[in-house]
């Protein structure tokens, strides 16, 4: 008797499969996920979790959140991040304090593993969504993340 039940289940499963693909076929306009990339360059939105490159956001007062703790530098498995820092007198308290001079990021070495962003205690660095990273000169891939003249936002260290 399994002969006939095999035929029945065979046809049933085949029709189930055809219903799935047929659904895709008729709903192609709404379900299509292909981006026509060079054509829609102006309107293209990358996904929230896309890992383009590491950036350090600055607010309108040119203040960042990086305390210079070097957690990211230590976390980075291949040395893509170098932090140049020194001790300066903090004008608010009058004490000497560690401050970053340059947060150097080598995009050419970065594997987009995201360990630096996980390690950062103050969320100073985040992922950007740009992906057009090709340049003509390799030195352009060595980026200084903190903008010139920027300083630490107040209240981050508490």
């Amino acid at each position: 008797m399994s002969y006939f039940s095999d035929i029945y289940s065979g046809i049933k499963t085949l029709l189930t499969g055809m219903r799935v693909t047929g659904g895709h076929f008729v709903r192609i306009r709404s379900e299509n996920i292909t981006q026509l990339y060079p054509d829609n360059r102006d309107t293209l939105q990358m996904f929230e979790r896309f890992r383009g490159e590491v950036v350090m956001p600055h607010d309108e007062n040119n203040e960042h959140r990086c305390t210079g703790c070097q957690s990211c530098e230590i976390a980075c498995p291949n040395g893509s991040i170098e932090i140049i820092w020194d001790r300066q007198v903090d004008p608010a308290t009058g004490k000497k304090k560690k401050m970053i001079d340059k947060h150097i990021y080598h995009l050419s070495m970065c594997t987009m593993c995201g360990l630096c962003i996980n390690a950062c205690p103050t969320d100073a660095i985040v992922w950007a969504q740009n992906f057009e990273n090709a340049v003509y000169d390799r030195s352009a891939l060595t980026k200084v993340l903190n903008q010139p003249g920027s300083k630490l936002k107040a209240g981050i260290e508490e």
Partner: peptide, 13 residues
């Protein structure tokens, strides 16, 4: 084209 539409793609365009 049909193959692409069955697979959420656009096909040759």
């Amino acid at each position: 084209k049909v193959a692409a539409w069955f697979q959420f793609r656009l096909g040759p365009n």
